[in-house]
Amino acid sequence: MSGYIEPMVGRYVHVDIGGETHRIYFEENGQGNSEAIPLVCLHTAGSDARQWRHLLADEEFAKSFRIIAFDMPWHGKSNPPASWNGEEYQLTTARYTETIRAFCRALKLEKPVVMGCSIGGRIVLNLAIDHAAEFRALIGLEAADFQAPWYDTTWLNRPDVHGGEVCAALVSGLIAPQSPDVTRTETLWGYKQGGPGVFKGDLYFYRADGDLRGRVDAINTKVCPLFLLTGEYDFSCTPEDTKRTAAGIAGASVTIMEQLGHFPMSENPEQFRRYISPVLGEILNQSKQSRQGVQV
């Protein structure tokens, strides 16, 4: 319908990361309810927070959650910081963790839920290991402590290969064949629009710096519940990778999502909703019980 305005709003917040102020672009919906639970959503490597637009516009979820999705620096509408001189971008575990915590602090979010996909799913595990008490619940989509590489990332950023085309073509196979053409195309468009070397730089965290094997057994799901959901068509982070990771975490919830791949929230939002709705419902119930417990 021409003239329809979607419910989410986008703004910039200044966030100090690594001693420097970054302008971080975020979109949110559901702020009206003061009891709304903050739900911070992390996009995949090489893309941006537009991947979450369907969740952001979900009227039902927005009744109980303040849904927030932000573009990581170098991604989407969050520019590189002023000090950047063109040197190679490389995301590290420490920097990624600092960015998420600093963003949550800047918005004064009280015990948010963080849901991340792919690299966002991996960093959620790191948050669970080192900072669980800061969060109400953690949700890892396409998350594992490690997964076997299946291509050489040097192809992602070289002058004789079109970066946008090769990034999108590489990840296109991670989308389930059942996903609608329109959302498949939109998911790939995010990859075609990434800055040069950004996808590759994100994968430095994924491939080199963020190997969490041998560390996830430190996760205490009694301090912070952990939900892991992986699409059956994800051959990058396979269901087996997620199950192996979860096997080392007492109390972790695992769901394998049918007819979905590596980008569940953007490649097939309707199908993803079927799986994420009960998870958000469980978090909401736990939150209500916790509040009632305090009142008694």
Partner: peptide, 16 residues
């Protein structure tokens, strides 16, 4: 027409 997971992409086939 609806390939099974892991058999649906050229690079999924190389990975397996």
């Amino acid at each position: 027409s609806e390939p099974r997971p892991g058999w649906h992409d050229l690079l999924a086939l190389t990975k397996r």
